[in-house]
């Protein structure tokens, strides 16, 4: 989805070819990911944190909690409540100067992000508490919501919060009539459709799926399959980032790969 609340959100008619002879503008094949690097534990004060560098995206995720609920009336006596705040800093985009804090787009992303982590976190283990997840986009380059969630998942692991799974995903879309994985900013703005997907890699359940633009049923289903293949690679990077900080034993032997083959 277009990163800005401007007319750029209107479905664009691409002025130039974004894919030529099966090769995208930046030299990638349709299924290729951009360069991706994740670092766990980059902040001192936060209980857990991660920095993701994905294409030109630079996104910081930091977690606090479980801690006392504020405001109190939000408290749930049976489980922890999850707060998820997504925001882009004012200097994050190539376009005009923005503002601090979440706009309408960011509030919606925070909401669907919260739902992803409500699925993953064992909230019932921490009644009457809240867990705060902060996703701050320092530089945006398309696919920030999935990148932010991929980083936030690791920040939660870094904070020692028990989870069923480490949510992971990628954005897929239709660019110049071709389904591609991991759209960059230009493809996002000028392509025909964008579909960010977050999976629970252990079960491959879909925890987040948004779509804009026009797609046939077959394109949506093929998009989900392409997203799954790409997500597998992103998930390997997640596990590697945890191993880099905690060692292979702590990151756990990831048996999800075996299950997924079934």
């Amino acid at each position: 989805m277009a990163e800005e609340e401007t007319a750029a959100m209107a479905p664009g008619k691409a002025p130039k070819k974004l894919i030529e002879n099966g090769i995208r503008n930046d030299g990638r094949k349709p299924e290729d990911l951009r360069n991706l690097k994740i670092t766990v534990g980059v902040l001192k004060k936060a209980a857990g944190s991660a920095l993701i560098e994905w294409g030109k995206n630079r996104i910081m995720a930091g977690v606090y909690g479980p801690r006392e609920v504020f405001p109190k009336h939000n408290m749930n006596p049976n489980k922890a409540i999850i707060n998820c705040r997504y925001a882009m800093v004012p200097f994050s985009s190539l376009e005009e100067h923005g503002r601090f804090g979440p706009n309408r787009r960011a509030i919606e992303i925070g909401k669907v992000g919260k739902h992803v982590f409500e699925n993953a976190i064992l909230t019932e283990q921490f009644p009457k508490t809240m867990i705060d997840i902060n996703i701050d986009v320092l530089q945006s380059d398309g696919g920030t919501r999935v990148a932010g969630i991929v980083a936030a998942a690791l920040a939660l692991v870094d904070a020692g919060i028990p989870m069923r799974d480490i949510p992971c995903g990628v954005s897929v879309g239709k660019v110049d009539g071709t389904l591609v994985a991991d759209l960059d900013k230009t493809e996002d703005n000028l392509g025909q459709s964008d579909m960010p997907v977050i999976f629970s890699p252990r079960t491959w359940d879909i925890l987040l799926l948004q779509m804009d633009g026009m797609l046939t049923k077959k394109e949506v289903m093929d998009g989900i399959d392409l997203a799954r293949i790409a997500t597998q690679r992103v998930h390997e990077m997640q596990v590697a980032a945890l191993e880099a900080k905690y060692g292979a034993a702590a990151a756990g032997d990831d048996d999800s790969q075996d299950e997924s083959a079934a």
Binding site: M195, S200, T216, K217, V220
Partner: peptide, 26 residues
């Protein structure tokens, strides 16, 4: 927006949905 054309999707809430569930919803 057409006989075989989707133009928006939104998933919310904590539950996960399988690929098969998505297909049948479509």
């Amino acid at each position: 927006c057409g006989d075989d054309l989707l133009c928006a999707s939104q998933k919310s809430g904590r539950a996960g949905f399988s690929r098969a569930e998505f297909e049948s919803m479509i």
